[in-house]
Design a protein around this nucleic acid. Structure first.
Length: 480
RNA sequence: GCCCCCAUCGUCCAGCGGCCUAGGACGCCGGCCUUUCAAGCCGGUAACACGGGUUCGAAUCCCGUUGGGGGCGCCA
């Protein structure tokens, strides 16, 4: 049997990190077993579903490196893969279920239901609706005839129980005294999530339903519908949810939760996908930096962690730095350039591009995020640098500052123009004035870059150019 | 209130009855390197929630408690 899994987001929001992880695990599972991933849009809620969200989900998945074999956009033998296009099919199944006695038309009002739940809470029992307002066939037919179709509920057999072997959690049992008779078709003829999702899983031949733990308690309902349809059951696997650093459900107040936010913040997709994979799963051994290919060969649903993970981006930042350093230098420059040009508000000319190229490797090993690059190299492309106040105070107040700035101008004027040449000239100047490297070079750094934190000094001087470097030392000296 | 799931360092993960005086990673702290900051290297800090069992032997199995999460919609 070929493995067929699905990722079925509702386009009611941007793809968030939890959804991205669920998609990733489905993808890894499919690829590991040489199976197929189906992407479907669970958009039965027309009011909240939008095209903007739908395309964000597609873009985010693609950015992460997750592709799908069937479904939205790529097509396949099952139509549009949008539930909003399949209402007729859900209705047809609902009617079949009514005909077979597995479901019934029901006239319980919201007030009836609420009253029952209140009674149950008082009695310390499960708040379960048992179908007491079930409509007779004749009454139901009359209501339908009158254009006032009542909702359809699934009849849960009581007494009874549903047990299944969850691929990540093991055996799970639900006694039917705790499972309601649930609505599968609303009064307006639209399907509920339980019906639509289950029918699609059956119709699309899904073999493994891998989804979030938030749906674990709904699984008995899905199993019951599947059985009533006379279909074989898929294997279910429920992934634990992601929490915020405070241990509470991950939400906006914990910071960015949308995948797109990480793309925009300068994260590399490989880092994000690697981080998401490690959050709740271990590739084995002690290695945590692992490529998608390696993940595919090692992935196993049974080894996915059962406990909820805290989404803490500290490690993601480190990991992003690892991936940045692993990049090809040219590729790094190419990706950084647009950000730098945006920061400057103008394109770089050829000389500047070459200057960028020369310090790129130095910046690459210092950046954790792409958004940090522009501030680090800005000094190369502006006429005058803005001095960081804290740096200036700390460095320029020493008596050595003036000596160094004065001496450096002469040293550079005479230096052979190479990193080695500049270093030799400056070190000779330091010796001549009896200055330590620390005391003598920091003023030059602040004068050159505006900050006491910068890429290595000699390389920076050479990249900037003799004229500009000397001018900056002169200006700083005058400003003391 | 009822049901389900979960429980190892601050965080993520390893451990699936003896190899555990509990391992790795991130973070944090210290050192080395060094023109700053990084990177790199070395070292350190820090956990089996609690209580009962089972067993010759429990982080590992069972029960309970506590804690956390999820669910209980004509939302998905």
């Amino acid at each position: 049997m070929t493995v067929r899994v699905r990722f079925a987001p509702s386009p009611t929001g941007f793809l968030h990190v939890g959804g991205g992880r669920t998609a990733l695990y489905n993808w890894l599972f499919a690829r590991h077993h040489g199976g197929a991933l189906v992407l479907r849009s669970d958009d039965t809620d027309a009011g909240r579903s939008t095209d903007e969200f739908r395309s964000d989900i597609l873009e985010s998945l693609t950015w992460l490196g997750i592709d799908w074999d069937e479904g939205i956009e790529v097509g396949g033998p099952h139509g549009t893969y949008r539930q909003s296009d399949r209402f007729h099919r859900y209705r047809e199944v609902a009617e079949t279920l009514v005909a077979s006695g597995a479901a019934y038309y029901d006239e319980a009002t919201p007030e009836d239901l609420q009253a029952m739940r209140d009674d149950a809470a008082r009695a310390g029992a499960s708040p379960v609706y048992d179908g007491r307002h079930r409509l007779s066939e004749i009454d139901a037919a009359a209501r339908i005839e009158a254009g006032d179709a009542p909702p359809v509920r699934f009849a849960v057999s009581r007494p009874g129980e549903t047990r299944f072997e969850d691929a990540v959690r093991g055996e799970v049992v639900f006694d039917h005294t705790n499972v309601d008779d649930f609505v599968i078709l609303r009064g307006d003829g639209s399907p509920t999530y339980h019906l639509a999702s289950t029918v699609d899983d059956v119709d699309y031949g899904i073999t493994h339903v891998v989804r979030g733990e938030d749906i674990l308690s709904s699984t008995p309902k899905h199993i019951l519908i599947t059985k009533a349809m006379g279909a074989g059951l898929p294997i279910y696997g429920h992934l634990s949810l992601l929490n915020g650093p405070d241990g509470k459900k991950l939400s906006k107040r914990h910071g960015d939760t949308a995948i797109r936010a990480y793309r925009e913040a300068g994260y590399l997709s490989q880092a994000v996908v690697n981080f998401l994979a490690i959050l709740g799963w271990s590739p084995g051994e002690d290695e945590e930096i692992v490529s998608l290919e390696e993940m595919v060969t090692r992935f196993d649903l049974g080894s996915v962690s059962k406990n909820p993970a805290v989404f803490d981006t500290t490690k993601l930042e480190w990991m992003n730095g690892v991936y940045i350093r692993a990049m090809d230098v040219a590729e790094f420059s190419d990706q950084a350039r647009p950000l730098i040009e945006e920061d400057l508000g103008r394109p770089l000319d050829d000389a500047e591009i070459s200057a960028l190229g020369s310090i790129a490797p130095l910046v690459q090993e210092r950046a954790k995020l792409f958004t940090e690059v522009a501030p680090m190299v800005r000094f190369l492309f502006v006429g005058e640098v803005a001095y960081d106040e804290w740096s200036w105070e700390k460095v320029m107040s020493t008596p050595e500052a003036g000596v160094a700035l004065q001496g450096a101008q002469a040293a550079l004027a005479a230096a052979e123009w190479s990193v080695e040449g500049v270093e030799a000239a400056l070190r000779a100047m330091l010796d001549e004035h009896g200055l330590s490297a620390r005391k003598g070079l920091q003023p030059l750094r602040v004068a050159l870059t505006g900050s006491s934190v910068s890429p290595p000094l000699f390389e920076s001087i050479v990249a900037l150019g003799r004229e500009a470097a000397v001018a900056r030392f002169r200006r700083a000296l005058e400003s003391i």
